[in-house]
Design a binder for these strands. Structure first.
Lengths: 117, 117
DNA sequence: TGAACATATAAGTATATGCTGATATGATTC
DNA sequence: GAATCATATCAGCATATACTTATATGTTCA
């Protein structure tokens, strides 16, 4: 069973793979696969500075892997389904174990932002 | 149609993705998908030093993505099908355009090593 | 055995990367 | 408008990375 797939320029694919080749960004992307998250949640989850998180998200956004939407004072990030790399990204994320328990931890601590503006 | 896939520890997946996130190594892996190649062929194809090629191959070998087999004076590299990352690697390579014309170039120049020892 | 070829390793360098702390920008709420 | 919270950006630093040149190791063949 051969499934045909949309090829991506090798340079572009390389850029995406390099981005995913960082453990923080890879976990972020896996989380975003099933959940929209805001910056402050990532800060809690990964235990690195807000600045560092912001810089990771900027890189992901710059190549179009994620997009942002402001909701009140928060900015929520989500996977950009319109990216021409989206299919490849999803395929890769299939191999990554769920990171959702990290969000559930947050929930327990009452730090999950669930914003319904 | 949901195809189940063998998950990989996120740390390990990150290492593999980082390795594939270099344009030279990514092209190497795509070439190796369909062909076994030796170091000197890669040197011609990529136009970087033999040392650099050797170092890339070492990294790929160190994490088990490729394996080597000596044939006379040459050492041929091939994808390591026994790697637990093999499935993920193949899935990723599906998105990469064939690099075989680079080998065909070599062939034209008479630089392709076809060793039948 | 020695010359030629193929590959690996060592050492050094320039650049890229991921992080921190400080500061700027923007939204909310009093 | 001031205080507070969320996010982005800037500057600086330590480490990682990809490359080069030089050298070592291993193979072939005269």
């Amino acid at each position: 069973m051969e499934v045909k797939v949309t090829e991506i320029e090798i340079e572009k694919a390389g850029i995406v793979l390099k981005l995913l080749g960082d453990k923080t960004r890879l976990a972020m992307m896996k989380l975003l696969e099933k959940n929209d998250c805001c910056v402050c949640e990532f800060v809690e989850i990964f235990g690195i500075s807000q600045s560092a998180i912001s810089q990771h998200l900027r890189k992901l956004r710059d190549v179009g892997l994620v997009k942002e939407k402001r909701k009140g004072q928060w900015i929520f990030y989500s996977l950009n389904k319109d990216s021409d790399m989206f299919e490849m990204v999803l395929r890769i994320l299939e191999f990554i174990p769920s990171q959702d328990e990290r969000l559930e931890e947050l929930e327990k601590q009452g730090l999950r932002i669930s914003c319904e503006i």
